[in-house]
Nucleic acid binder design. Sequence first.
DNA 1: CCCCTGACGGGGC
DNA 2: TGCCCCGCCAGGG
Length: 110
Amino acid sequence: MNPNDNFFEKSYTIARQIPYGRVTSYGAIAKYLGAARSARMVGWAMNASHNDDTVPAHRVVNKQGLLTGKHHFDGTNLMQQLLESEGVKVINNQIQDFETIFWNPSDELE
DNA sequence: CCCCTGACGGGGC
DNA sequence: TGCCCCGCCAGGG
């Protein structure tokens, strides 16, 4: 990855590699980027990615598997709908079998 | 320029 | 196990 890319771009690069039907967390991305304590910035990056439809921001949730960012999508549960359309079960903002579908960039990427 | 907030997470107690 | 506090850093008031 190009080290000259800014934090936002790096976050997008990782997010774009999340496989269909899988999810990861803000912290996992931050950690992979070498900024484990800046998970909030990843959230900020996702917020700024609203214009960029190539970034699957709905596949990024918090470490518990909660859809904490659903309020930032259009409508009330667009984020949940997007996930469910990929086969991800969501009940009361909580992703089911979270540990099973969790995709860790630190494990899958180099 | 200072203060507060936020799609988070870890560590302390 | 759970609550609370603190670091992180970009933006807005």
